[in-house]
C-alpha cells in the first residue's frame, strides 16, 4: 500500500513536469533539454527561499517564475541567436547546473523540520487526522490538477491558439502578422515554469534539494507524454493533458515495479532509459502498423 502511495505521489509530481514537456514536445515540437536544468532549478530556488523562512506556497510561485526565466533564456538563444533547438536547451541545462549550485549554496540542502505545502499548521487543521497518510497525495493532486486546468484553459485562449499554431505550422503565425519567435519563447517559458514548479513540489516532498535530482527529467517527461498520448489516442474524450498525467503515473509505476523485482535503486536511471527506449520502439511500431494497413 505504501509503495502504491509512493508511486502515486511521485508520479503525480512528475506529471506536473510532464505537462511542461507536453508543451515543448507535442505542441511546440521543440526537444527542450532545458528541463534537466529547470527541474532542479525549481528545487534549488525552493530550498534557498525556504531556508530563509519564505512561505512554502510562495516558494512554489517563486520556483515557477525562475523556471519561466530559464525557458525565456533558452528561447532567446534559439530564436534570436539562431542556435538549433536541441543545442539551445543543452547550453542552458549545462549553465543551470552551476546556477543551481549558486542558488542553493551547496549540492545538498535539507529542509527538514520546516513547514511545507504538505505539512503546515493551516493544512493540518483543515484536514482530519484520519487522512494524515494521504495528505501528501491530496496536495500533489491539487497542484497537478490546478496546473492541468490552467493549461487547458490557456490552450483555449487566443494566445493559446497561437501557441498551438506555431508548433503546427509556424508560417501561418507569420502570415497572421505575429512574431512566431516570440510565441515560441512564450511556450518555452510556460513549459519550464511548470517543470520548475514540479521541481519545487518534489523538493518539498523529499524535504531536500540535491543537485543531481534533475538528471533524466526530460526522459521521464517524454516517456510520460508518449505513454499517455498513445494510450488514449483513440479516446478523443480524454484530454491530452489528462492523458499525460496518467502516463506519468504509469511510467513511475513501471520503474517502481522494475525495482521491486530485484533491481536496486542505483539502477534507477538505467531502468528509466531502457523503459524509455522500449516505449519509443513500441509507439513507433504502432505507427508502422497503421501505415501498412492503410
Amino acid at each position: 500500500m505504501s509503495i502504491l502511495l509512493g508511486v502515486l505521489e511521485q508520479g503525480i509530481i512528475y506529471a506536473i513536469m510532464a505537462l511542461g514537456i507536453y508543451i515543448t514536445y507535442k505542441i511546440l515540437d521543440f526537444p527542450d533539454l532545458t528541463a534537466d536544468g529547470s527541474f532542479p532549478l525549481g528545487a534549488a530556488v525552493t530550498a534557498a527561499v525556504m531556508v530563509k523562512g519564505v512561505n512554502p506556497y510562495l516558494a512554489l510561485v517563486i520556483a515557477f517564475a525562475a523556471g519561466v526565466l530559464s525557458g525565456i533564456v533558452t528561447g532567446i538563444i534559439h530564436v534570436k541567436l539562431k542556435v538549433r533547438d536541441l543545442l539551445s536547451g543543452i547550453i542552458v541545462m549545462t549553465g543551470l547546473y552551476s546556477v543551481n549550485l549558486r542558488i542553493a549554496g551547496k549540492s545538498n540542502v535539507p529542509i527538514f523540520n520546516m513547514e511545507t505545502i504538505f505539512d503546515n499548521a493551516g493544512l493540518n487543521n483543515v484536514l482530519p487526522e484520519s487522512v494524515a497518510s494521504y495528505q501528501t497525495l491530496f496536495v500533489v493532486v491539487a497542484v497537478a490538477l490546478a496546473s492541468k486546468f490552467a493549461l487547458d484553459a490557456y490552450l483555449k485562449t487566443k494566445s493559446g491558439y497561437l501557441l498551438r499554431a506555431v508548433g503546427d505550422n509556424s508560417v501561418i503565425v507569420t502570415t497572421l502578422a505575429k512574431d512566431s519567435g516570440f510565441v515560441k519563447i512564450l511556450g518555452l517559458a510556460i513549459a519550464n515554469g511548470l517543470i520548475a514548479l514540479s521541481g519545487s513540489v518534489m523538493c518539498q516532498q523529499q524535504r531536500f534539494f540535491e543537485i543531481s535530482m534533475g538528471t533524466g527529467t526530460m526522459v521521464i517527461g517524454l516517456a510520460s507524454v508518449i505513454i499517455g498520448t498513445n494510450l488514449f489516442k483513440n479516446f478523443s474524450k480524454v484530454r491530452a493533458t489528462t492523458a499525460v498525467i496518467i502516463g506519468a503515473v504509469i511510467y513511475k509505476g513501471c520503474v517502481a515495479a522494475a525495482i521491486k523485482f530485484g533491481l536496486s535503486a542505483t539502477d534507477m536511471k538505467l531502468v528509466t532509459a531502457v523503459l524509455f527506449l522500449i516505449i519509443l520502439v513500441l509507439s513507433r511500431g504502432r505507427v508502422k502498423k497503421v501505415k501498412n494497413n492503410a
Binding site: K156, T157, S159, Y161, R164, D168, N169, L176, K178
Partner: peptide, 26 residues
C-alpha cells in the same frame, strides 16, 4: 492551415488577425 486544430479553431485563429492574441476565449 494548422493540421492539428479543428476547422472552427483554424477559422477563429484567422479571424483574429490584426487584433491582439490575448487571454480572451480563442
Amino acid at each position: 492551415t494548422c493540421p492539428s486544430m479543428t476547422i472552427l479553431e483554424n477559422m477563429s485563429l484567422a479571424d483574429n488577425k490584426g487584433k491582439p492574441y490575448n487571454l480572451g476565449s480563442g
